[in-house]
Design a protein around this nucleic acid. Structure first.
Lengths: 184, 184
DNA sequence: GAGGCGGCTGATACACTGTAACACGGCTCC
DNA sequence: GGAGCCGTGTTACAGTGTATCAGCCGCCTC
């Protein structure tokens, strides 16, 4: 059930800019990415008058450092394994709820997992998630054309949307170039 | 976690034709719909040389009769409660896997639930699911414009899709007309 | 400072979702 | 008949998510 692929990219290239720094198969700690995410989160919470507690920071750090979808229990495990005290999954869920509401983390429904988001879009922005079956990496992008087409379709159906889930599974460009015979 | 809304519509109007027979709040057993679904399934399995076993038929019947997303355990419960012998959830999952592969049933990722499908599209067709938060009803439609826009976006990103999930939560037209204060 | 209040966290329990593995019966093919 | 495949039953277990209560801490008011 879990896609235990390798550590990967997929954190901050999106919005149709194409800055795959080293491709889905390139593993890098993304320390600066995680730092960037927490900094942004801290600033954002301060602006909104919300608390960016140590727990929330740690959860975000773990997720941001991973770069691929991570389950709540995985997050709890990593946090507990980092020498700190034991963190229950419930606490992780609460932190994830908070982070998701603030748009700092996104939930990947098809995997029951979470990824960090490095952008400054609100919680309401509708994104497209590209999940590579080979490497497990995830890419996040906005797609205005898709959004407008969907909006028109919904309007025609008389449906008022409040949230959307758009996830695509397949093979990322890097994996396809490598022949697709790697990973799993 | 569960959306225990009321029984509802949402089985056979789609493909951009607008034949909401009685709207999301109109409850009707949909017996004929369930029958139609099983008939179609039987024909389709026969054509493909697959077995449409009693278990699979029963699962499809339950799902089709419901008209809103139903969890595997709910299905098992209903089947067991229909006077028949006890059906384990595992068996339901297997039947659902089969039905999903054949495109007779769709999985709603955001709810971990399943809905029957009354159309003749293959398993590969990409659909949009409209889930009403008020009544719990679900509507299913194709959206060629969305699909083409998404295809272009993916091609631009160098991503080769194999499957897609597009689910929209919100308020259906009927519920909005009723003021949205009903249901829960 | 005492008390109240609200938000956050810890902890336990539990419900729900999904899979693995093995056994068994029916069927087909040799 | 025996082998092999498929579908199902059964048990066990892993993984996901929520409910609930209790404790802590900061803030506000009196």
């Amino acid at each position: 059930m879990r896609a235990d692929a390798q550590h990967d990219h997929g954190h901050d290239h999106a919005h149709s800019h194409d800055h795959r720094h080293d491709g889905p198969q390139g593993r890098h700690g993304c320390g600066q990415c995680a730092e960037g995410a927490t900094e942004r989160a801290e600033r954002l919470c301060h602006e909104r008058g919300l608390q960016f507690t140590p727990l929330r920071r740690d959860v975000l750090t773990v997720v941001a450092a991973e770069g691929r979808p991570l389950g709540a229990y995985d997050i709890a495990e990593r946090m507990s394994g980092q020498g700190g005290r034991r963190v229950a999954a419930v606490s992780v869920y609460r932190a994830l709820d908070f982070l998701t509401e603030q748009g700092l983390v996104h939930r990947i429904s098809s995997r029951n997992a979470f990824v960090s988001c490095g952008h400054d879009h609100g919680a309401g922005a509708s994104l497209v998630f590209l999940i590579c079956r080979q490497c497990g990496g995830i890419d996040e992008m906005t797609a205005p054309a898709v959004e407008s087409a969907l909006g028109a379709t919904l309007a025609q159906a008389g449906f008022t949307p409040t949230s959307r889930i758009l996830e695509v599974e397949g093979e990322c460009g890097a994996c396809r170039e490598r022949g697709g015979a790697v990973g799993r």
